[in-house]
Amino acid sequence: MDVVIARERELGEIVADEIATLIDARPDAVLGLATGSSPLRIYDAVAQRVRDGELTLARARGFMLDEYVGLPPGHPCRYSTVIDEDFVSRVDFAPGAVRGPDGDAADLTRACADYEDSIREAGGVDLQILGIGTDGHIAFNEPGSSLASRTRVKTLTAQTRTDNARFFGGDIDAVPYHCLTQGLGTIMDARHIMLVATGDAKAEAVAHLVEGPVSARWPATILQHHPRVSVLVDDAAASRLALVDYYRHTQAHRHLVS
């Protein structure tokens, strides 16, 4: 696990560099796309490179991590809407190249299985972008999730609904109780995972992720078993890491492995 500590504005450029390197080597690469506030600087940086003609995603594909159940198409908080506004509409993906789980399906269990199949058929995710929740969840794998889980229906915790209420005008009652989410086992299949976290509120979760025991209580800790994970944090999110001086030392003496 590589831990990189940098200013918040630099984190997006670091991930964008990795995406550009991947696309240069494999123009048809598969990206795993997260929503929320953590990836926004990444999407800004990638979109700028596409506008400048330095990068094209015309042959690339993308898979979203999750989707709410019950929000109608076009709802501003529906993740397919969010990812389109934050990223897809700003770059040059081919039509239909980015897809997410179907939160409107009549048979949600079948929709989850179909989503797993579609990721497999695409050859798997080459680079997965992640954020982390204050309670240690990644995607919508809440505390207590199976560490081997696959895409499935999940019930959101009160903490996650409270955290996400800001996207619903502060109205927690408007936040759905259920979602479809890639499982921890699904996420672990990605060949490279880049997790971004900023701010004091994420410091405890980051400390558990990097230095704590692997536990379903803090789902992100499963990433300790992945062969290629990059954890990118600002000073605030790194503030509870016991080995922070070591991470800074190793960062100063080697580049992020690509």
Rank of each mutant, 00 (worst) to 15 (best):
H253S: 11
D28T: 02
R120M: 12
I14D: 00
A203V: 11
K202L: 09
V229M: 04
S118C: 06
V88W: 04
L184I: 15
G74D: 03
M1S: 05
T250L: 14
L147V: 12
A47P: 03
A45Q: 04
D200I: 09
I132Y: 00
T81H: 07
Y247M: 08
L243F: 11
Y177P: 00
R59Q: 14
G199W: 12
M1C: 03
A122Y: 12
Q182W: 07
P219F: 11
S89G: 10
E54W: 09
V50W: 11
M188H: 12
G183Q: 00
V231D: 06
V15F: 07
Q251N: 10
D126P: 02
L195V: 10
V233W: 09
L33M: 01
S239A: 15
I193M: 09
I14A: 10
H249N: 08
R228W: 11
Y79Q: 03
R49W: 11
G12K: 05
M1A: 08
H225K: 13
A205S: 15
R59D: 12
D28Q: 06
M188I: 10
E13V: 06
G96P: 08
R110G: 14
F93W: 10
M64S: 05
H137K: 11
R240D: 07
I83H: 01
T134E: 15
D117Y: 13
D44F: 11
Y115P: 02
T181C: 08
L243R: 15
R254S: 13
D44K: 11
A205M: 12
L11R: 07
I222H: 00
V214E: 11
C179I: 08
Y177E: 14
A16P: 00
R254V: 00
R7G: 06
E204R: 14
Y68W: 04
A106I: 07
Q182R: 10
I83E: 02
G100D: 02
P27M: 14
A111R: 03
L232F: 10
Q159F: 03
P143F: 04
G32L: 02
G170W: 14
L195P: 04
A139E: 06
Y247E: 08
S239W: 13
A105G: 08
T198M: 13
S38E: 03
V214Y: 05
